[in-house]
């Protein structure tokens, strides 16, 4: 395989991506407003400080980071919305910034808080407009629409003006609108934000199924750790514009989860203090006691518990993923 072929197999290539924003600061109150009018204080925000990664065709990758880490900025650059200060980006062989029609027909950016549906008209009108804009042949459009409509269970909502729908209903219709043209690369920005638990699960199921069925490349940002645990094998962790980790989610957990959680259900009231010798007591909610012990000592600790305490039940678990991510960000 020569080098060119290798390059063309990558759906997304990002190398040394830098983005600086100029922002004007304003002090509070009228005084601040007036002074910023005459002598605006400019500040450069360095949103991305040289990020590099590549994504293969058909991969589903989670993009994690706290607020302001640069996740959305990266997605915006990859979809051609904002202009990178420097660095190289390529999506499906195109430079996103050129915004060539062939490129735009291949991608979709789904933002949890942005909407493209015409607010006052039924969603079907927007879909029909998208059909024409993306030049989707009539038959393919109908098949595609039926497929998405049944997958997302929105058949009854198509003819109701969008403003009368609930957020969850609207989000599903937004998805239909974003996927009608069968994009091969999709950027999801917080797709489950604001949705209830059932709707979140539905959205996750949908994304996974879509990825499998269409071999679509998906890059997804989320604050919701369940999204990632469910969906992404590979994660890219970014903080303050820098890449912290790029690899399997399992590996991330292994590297940073240095402890295991033991949940003990005690049969009798006993001296809980004694448990401290075995591990750190995280929580006492009698009869349940939660302990954390070093990873390597988990088996020994469990044996000791069973021997010396009136244990009714015991489980050994991994730390919750939120904990681990928090550790990654705090540098532990």
């Amino acid at each position: 395989m020569n080098k060119n072929e290798k390059v063309s197999q990558k759906a997304i290539i990002v190398e040394g991506l830098i983005k600086n924003f100029e922002v004007t600061e304003k002090e509070k109150g009228i005084r601040g407003t007036i002074s910023s009018l005459f002598s605006p204080k400019k500040k450069t925000v360095r949103a991305l400080k040289g990020v590099s990664f590549t994504i293969e065709r058909g991969e589903l990758v989670g993009f994690i980071g706290p607020n302001g880490a640069g996740k959305t900025t990266t997605l915006k650059i990859l979809s051609g919305l904002i202009y990178p200060s420097s660095g190289f980006t390529q999506v499906e062989g195109f430079n996103p910034w050129d915004r060539k029609p062939e490129f735009l027909k291949k991608i979709s950016l789904v933002m949890g808080q942005k909407n493209q549906l015409w607010w006052d008209l039924p969603a079907i009108e927007t879909f029909d407009l998208n059909r024409v804009i993306y030049e989707i042949p009539e038959r393919a459009y109908k098949e595609r629409l039926n497929e998405l409509v049944s997958l997302l269970e929105v058949g009854k909502l198509l003819n109701i003006p969008v403003r009368k729908l609930s957020l969850g209903q609207r989000m599903r219709l937004e998805l239909v609108a974003a996927l009608l043209h069968k994009p091969s690369v999709i950027f999801f920005d917080e797709p489950t934000i604001g949705l209830d638990l059932i709707a979140q699960q539905k959205m996750r199921d949908f994304i996974l199924e879509y990825n499998k069925k269409n071999q679509a490349t998906i890059l997804l940002t989320s604050h919701n750790m369940e999204d990632l645990a469910d969906l992404a094998k590979r994660v890219i962790v970014i903080d303050r514009g820098k890449l912290l980790f790029d690899g399997e989610l399992g590996k991330l957990i292994e590297n940073h989860a240095k402890e295991k959680i033991i949940k003990v259900y005690l049969a009798k009231d006993g001296d809980i203090k004694k448990l401290e010798k075995i591990g750190k007591i995280r929580k006492v909610d009698f009869p349940q006691v939660v302990l954390s012990v070093p990873r390597t000592a988990a088996a020994v600790a469990a044996a000791e518990l069973l021997q010396n305490f009136p244990v009714a039940d015991l489980t050994i678990e991994e730390e919750p993923i939120e904990e681990i991510i928090r550790k990654v960000f705090s540098g532990k």
Partner: peptide, 12 residues
Amino acid sequence: RGDLTNYLLKPV
């Protein structure tokens, strides 16, 4: 408002 985004993403 950033709604321009919707148009920039489409081939129009």
